[in-house]
Amino acid sequence: MTEGRLPALQPKPVAVVIGASSGIGAALARRLAGEGYRVALLARRGPAMEELARLLNERCGEDTARVYVHDVTRYEDVPRLFQRILQEMSRVDAVLYVAGVMHRVDLEEFDFAKDREMLEVNLLGAVAWLGQAALYFQGLGHGHIVGISSIAGDRGRVANPAYHAAKAGLTTYLESLRNRLSRRGVHVLTVKPGFVDTPMLANAPRKKLFWVISPDQAAADIVRAMKKGKQVIYTPARWRWVALVIQHIPSFIFRRLSF
């Protein structure tokens, strides 16, 4: 009857996954639900999430997942929506910002509309959501903040200036959050994936891809890092060594490289 658990002492934690309709976000939602979390699924596209929520509620118990249709660039909606989640799900223990866009950009192309959207979704939306999460968690002295940055944020390469800038900004923002919040008992995790087989990868040049992992593998790495209280992880982990090299390539060489 008690399923080896005392619900009074071990209430199920709640994770808010922003960008949960596909890719890493959806995989994270499945993984977290499997680990005993209840999940709030946020994304623009409702139907995909409804399907995921139905699946999770079937598999992990009713009221495991709830769907909130939300556009991350509507920053002013964030406080009220966060409060609505608190009201409907009773608590929030982890906020994971997974939403991201990467447009295909040619080497000579400078398109402000594309660049703006990448900055808004990848960086400003994250600042709106994770800042809100920080506001709530710092009072509690508890919580996980997870931001999906990218190895692309480690260096400004020729490929996609606005994307690199957004991810670099996110990495630095998360580091600041960590420095502010770790003393208050809040855990901040920066995730830097390499190539993950998600819809976003459709915009990347196929032939250059290697070490591609599934979203489920990435989600497993992320959830394990959350549990261990890691600060920065690469997924898969071997990207750490690539990043180490890239970070140390001097500019006179780096600006001549074609990737």
Partner: peptide
Amino acid sequence: WQRAFNFGRSTWRP
């Protein structure tokens, strides 16, 4: 918002 503990300090709720 804060954590409220029970007396046994075995659990809390936001």
